[in-house]
Simulated assay, not measured.
Amino acid sequence: MGMILTGVVIAIAIAIGTGYYLQAEQQPAWMVNSTSSTRVGDPGQNLVGPAWTGEPGPINTDSPQS
């Protein structure tokens, strides 16, 4: 019984230690994948621009519905 509890405690300690290590080593994708042939950059300047609010604009009722 003591060996099982020791194994459980060691497994939990390894999991917690690995979690802290991986969290410290992790970098955002826009920093890691920034090469000359990709279009990823600072998310504030990527695709929609820094002033984008995410709110939808007015609905255009002049176009036909499909």
Rank of each mutant, 00 (worst) to 15 (best):
P28C: 01
G19P: 01
T61W: 07
L5Q: 09
P43F: 05
L22M: 04
L5V: 11
N46M: 08
Y21R: 03
P28F: 01
V40E: 00
T6P: 00
I4S: 11
Y21E: 07
V32W: 01
I16Q: 09
T61Q: 15
D62N: 15
A51E: 12
P64V: 14
A24F: 06
A15M: 13
P64G: 08
I10T: 10
M31S: 08
I14D: 06
P28S: 09
V48Y: 14
E55P: 06
G2S: 08
W52N: 13
L47K: 06
G54W: 08
Q65T: 13
P56I: 01
S66P: 15
M1E: 05
P43Q: 11
G19S: 11
N33T: 04
S34C: 00
T38G: 03
A11D: 03
P50I: 08
A29W: 06
I10Y: 10
G17I: 00
V32Q: 07
N46D: 14
W30S: 01
P56G: 07
W30L: 01
D42S: 12
N33Q: 05
M1V: 10
V8K: 10
L47H: 14
P56Y: 11
S63I: 15
A11T: 04
Y20C: 03
A13V: 13
L22H: 03
P50T: 07
A15F: 12
G57S: 10
S66Q: 10
V32D: 03
P28D: 02
I16V: 15
N46Q: 13
G57C: 05
T53A: 12
T18L: 14
A51C: 00
S63N: 12
P58Q: 12
V32F: 08
Q27V: 00
P43K: 13
G49S: 14
T35I: 09
